[in-house]
Simulated assay, not measured.
Amino acid sequence: MSQLSLFVKSGFVKAPLANGIGRYVPQCQRMTLKFCLGWGNSRGVRDFIQHDLIEFVKQNPGTVMYLKPRRHRSPVLVAEYLNGGREWFSLNDMTREEVYKWVDLYRTKAGYPDMHFKNYQHSDIPSIQGYWTPFTNKPADRNMLEFPQNSLNTPLNLKPSTSEIISKLYGEPQEQRSSR
């Protein structure tokens, strides 16, 4: 058992019922930016509000954005979700770009607390073979080819057919034999 699992709850994946069937419903209902108008640790939040907030709100009409100026307090982002979840995050001494990334991250979350997800399946002896991909058993020399290649339309390990072997033995071209 890892040290992290002692403090993080575990559970199964919970998804909003049929979200995405018909139309997608963003789970973030509203976000509140609390910041100070004068302190320096709110500078990134004020720059985000001045330069990026209008464009962000136009791109995300399903999420309501509230601004709450407070005197002599650290900047905070509060996100409220449709499932009743509420998350609080400090934006203290962050740049404008970092604030934008955190606001975008909390906009895309579902509002469930961070947890270690359980699987419905369990194996005492997990596979050691690794993952299979369509490129697993392909020859490595194909990495250096320039495409399009006509020779790739046929399998590389193809043995000559019986009719090709006979035509080579008797010296008769294959086109003449097929016209008979």
Rank of each mutant, 00 (worst) to 15 (best):
S10L: 00
L152I: 13
Y120I: 05
P16W: 10
R70I: 06
N119L: 13
S167G: 03
L82P: 01
S74P: 02
Q129R: 10
I49N: 02
E172W: 07
R46W: 12
V78T: 15
S123F: 11
M1F: 08
L152C: 14
G11I: 03
G40M: 14
Q121H: 11
L33Q: 04
Y120A: 09
V64W: 03
E164F: 08
S179D: 04
N150Y: 09
G20Y: 00
G20K: 01
I128M: 12
K68H: 15
L6N: 11
V103G: 05
S151Q: 11
E146S: 04
D52T: 03
V8P: 02
L37M: 14
G11K: 01
P69W: 03
K58D: 11
F35G: 01
G85A: 02
W88I: 08
V8C: 07
L82D: 03
Y100K: 12
E172I: 09
V8G: 02
V78I: 15
G62R: 10
T162G: 07
E97I: 09
F135T: 11
K168V: 02
M31N: 06
L4K: 07
A15Y: 10
Y66R: 12
E55K: 06
I166E: 14
T95M: 07
M115V: 04
T32V: 04
A110P: 01
N19M: 14
M31Y: 06
P26D: 14
L33S: 02
K34T: 14
G11M: 07
F12S: 10
D104P: 00
R46V: 09
V25L: 08
Y131I: 02
I49M: 10
R96W: 00
V45F: 11
P134H: 06
R30C: 09
I125V: 14
R46Q: 14
C36D: 05
L67D: 06
E98I: 01
V99T: 10
